[in-house]
Amino acid sequence: MRKVLGFLAAVVLAILLTSYGLWTHKRHAGHYLTDLRIQLVINDGEPGDHGNLLGIQPELFPSDYSSLKRLHRKLAAYLQQAREHGLINDKTIVVLPEHIGTWLFAVDEKSQFYEAATIEEAMNWLAFSNPVLFIDALLHARGESRLDDAHLRMKARSMAQDYQSVFGGLAKEFGVTLVAGSIVLPAPEVHNGQLQAGKGALYNSSVVFGRDGLPIGQPQRQLFPSWYQRGYIRSGKDAPLNVIDTPAGRLATLIGSDSWYPDNYVRLNASGAELIAVPAFVAGNGSWSRPWRSDKHPTLMSPLDPEPKPLTEGEAWRSLSLTPISTAKAGISVFMRGQFWDQGSAGHSFATRGGQSVAERSISAALKGAKPGHGARLINLWL
C-alpha cells in the first residue's frame, strides 16, 4: 500500500511540475497600444549646421515592455513625430530618461505580471515564472537588498542584448546619436561593439549609441545612486566621467542625481565637455511638487537657500542640475513619465543654455488635452 501511495504521489508531483514548467513557457501576447502622441514644449534657437539636443520624455507603462517590437514601435513613433517637426538631422543628439532600459526585465512575461496591482506583486510573478533564473540570481545577489538585486540581475544577459537591440537600432534607424537613458546591470562593459552584463555588483549605467547603432566608448556608471536604491545599486564614485566626441560636439552624461554635484562639473569643464545630457527619474506621482528630501543629501545643502520655505523636489532639481558652474554651452535633463503598477513617476524635463534656464512654450497650448504631469514631451535646443 505504501508503494502504491508513493507511486501516486510521485505521479501527481510529476504532473504538477510538468504543468508548472509548461506554464512558465507560455508568455503574454498583448495587442493594446498605449498613446503614441507627443507634444513639443521647448524648441529653442534657430535651425543651423551645428545640430541639436533633443530630449524625449516618454510616457510608458508595463505593457509597452511586453515585447521589444511594442517598445520599438512606441519610441519610433516619438522619433518620427520629431522628424516631422524638422528636429532630426545627422548631428542630432537624442536624450532619453533614466531607467528606460532597466524596465526591460518586463519583456516577454506572463499576463499576470502585467496585470499585477502592485510592483511587489509583479516582482513575485517575475520570480515565480522564471524560477531557474531567479534562484541563480539570488545566489549571486549583493548588497543589503538581496531580493531587489536578484529581481534586476536575473535577466541581465537578455536585458543587455535587448537594450542594444532597441536603442542602438533606433539610433541607426533615425541616423542620430542617442543617449539611451540608463539601465541597471551587473558590471556592464562593451566588448567588440556589444554591451555585455558581467558578474559583479549592479550599476546604473548609460550607453551612448552612434549613428551606426554601436556603443560609443564604455558605459557611464552613475556615481551617486538615489538614496532609495543604495541597498542594491553600487556607487560608481571612482568611475571616470566620460566625454565623447559626437557630430554636434563633446558630450558628457550625468545620470540622475550625479548632476547635483559641483565637483562633477569641475571635472567635465577640465575635459572640455560642450554638451551635457542628464537622464533622470523621480519616483512617485506628484513627487515633483512635494518637499525635497534634503536630509538624504546633506552634502548638497550648502549651495541651496531653503528660506522662506522648504524646496520642492522640482525646485531642487532646477537649482542643482545644469548650473552655471558648467562651462558647457547647453544641457538637458529628461525625465520618465508613466505608471508602473502602483509606482508612478514624476519629473518635468528642462533645458539650459549657458547655465540659464530655457523657457517653455505656453503650457496651456503645449499640453492641451493632457492632465498635469501626464503626456509625452519633446524638448529641443538648436546648437
Rank of each mutant, 00 (worst) to 15 (best):
L5S: 02
I15H: 01
L17H: 07
T18E: 05
Y20G: 05
H25M: 11
Y32G: 01
N43W: 00
D44T: 04
G48I: 11
D49Q: 14
N52S: 15
G55D: 02
G55F: 01
Q57E: 11
Q57T: 14
P62L: 08
Y65P: 10
K69N: 07
R70M: 12
A76E: 08
A77N: 07
A77D: 10
Q81M: 10
R83T: 03
G86L: 11
N89Q: 11
T92C: 13
E98F: 01
H99F: 13
T102K: 01
F105V: 11
V107H: 00
K110M: 06
A116K: 03
N124G: 07
N124C: 00
W125I: 06
W125T: 04
L126E: 07
A127F: 15
S129G: 08
N130S: 15
L133S: 10
F134R: 00
L138V: 09
L139E: 07
H140P: 00
A141F: 06
S145R: 09
D148L: 15
D149S: 10
H151V: 13
R153G: 14
Q161R: 12
Q161A: 14
Q164D: 05
S165D: 15
F167N: 06
T177P: 02
S182M: 04
V184Y: 00
L185K: 12
N192L: 05
L195P: 04
F209I: 08
R211P: 07
D212Y: 05
L214E: 08
L214F: 09
P219V: 06
Y228K: 02
Q229F: 07
I233C: 02
G236E: 03
K237R: 13
K237Q: 11
A239V: 01
I244N: 02
D245C: 02
A248N: 06
G256L: 02
G256S: 15
G256T: 06
D258T: 09
S259D: 14
R267V: 12
N269Y: 05
N269S: 04
S271C: 02
A280N: 11
V282W: 04
G284Q: 13
R290H: 13
K296F: 06
P303I: 05
P306H: 10
P306T: 09
E313A: 06
A316L: 09
S319C: 00
P324I: 01
I325V: 13
S326P: 07
G338M: 08
W341E: 09
W341Q: 10
G347N: 06
R353L: 10
E360D: 13
I363L: 10
S364F: 12
A365T: 09
A366Y: 04
L367Q: 15
K371A: 13
G373I: 11
G373C: 10
H374M: 05
H374F: 03
A376L: 03
A376Q: 02
L378K: 05
L381P: 03
